[in-house]
Design a protein around this nucleic acid. Structure first.
Lengths: 127, 127
DNA sequence: TATTTATTTCCATACTTCTGGAAGTATGGA
DNA sequence: TCCATACTTCCAGAAGTATGGAAATAAATA
């Protein structure tokens, strides 16, 4: 993943309405949700919703399909996964067990018991 | 995790320099890196770096400790994990295998083989 | 104490983003 | 064809963010 693409994706998520929409669509799964229903649930005008959902779509986190007069928005799973990976790439130079103890649990099962003591603290500067 | 905290965290990542710093610190692991070295690697003035790294710290993604004259910045692993989880919480109403096929791999091992075909594609536009 | 090194704070300028009203487009039904 | 529904685009003011120069602070060293 290219850094500018990641910045675009993160910018699109860095806004309360859009983050809410995103999480709504993640929860909805492959079925997605029509624009009107999202606007209604969120109590924001249709034009404002359209602006935000377009931002998410431009960023590649969401995709859409037309069904009659409706536009159904849906999470774009592969791109979401790519973004997640990008954020923690090469974590601890390949020892993520060093630093991500019992946290990323709802989506991840970090294989821990690898014998290396977690949370090592080293004094001072180095390379 | 509260939504405003997540928005703050994502805003702090939604900028090229900061995302680069963040990934640098994720890679560095618990040892962290002194401010001066980050600025040098990134070729940005010290005051600009200070501004950005402070933004990451305010968002809770990064923490710091003083060693002599240096300030060592370091990833804040538990908060990073929390943010990641928040983004994909309740994914597909509890069936993340429906939508996140083989993506979030560098940090996560999504238990896949659950019999439900992954990567279902719905007709229409994507990207 | 004076000097150097490491980093932060203050500030002004330039730039980007959010919001909702008004108007526009597209689809389906009478 | 005319109308209602479902969205999207355009616009402009208000608010927020990024950048780097200059000055301030803080710690180590001579």
């Amino acid at each position: 993943m290219e850094i500018n693409k990641a910045v675009t994706a993160l910018s699109s998520l860095a806004q309360e309405s859009r983050l809410t929409i995103f999480r709504m669509l993640v929860k909805a799964g492959p079925e997605g949700m029509p624009a009107g229903k999202i606007a209604e649930k969120m109590k924001i005008p249709a034009n404002t919703l359209s602006f935000h959902v377009k931002e998410l779509a431009n960023a590649g986190l969401v995709k859409s399909r037309k069904v009659g007069r409706s536009v159904i928005y849906q999470m774009n799973a592969p791109n979401i996964g790519e973004l997640m990976s990008f954020l923690t790439e090469d974590c601890c130079q390949g020892h993520p067990d060093l630093c991500l103890p019992a946290s990323a649990s709802s989506c991840c099962e970090t294989a821990t018991e690898s014998g290396i003591s977690a949370n090592r603290q080293v004094i001072g500067a180095e390379n």
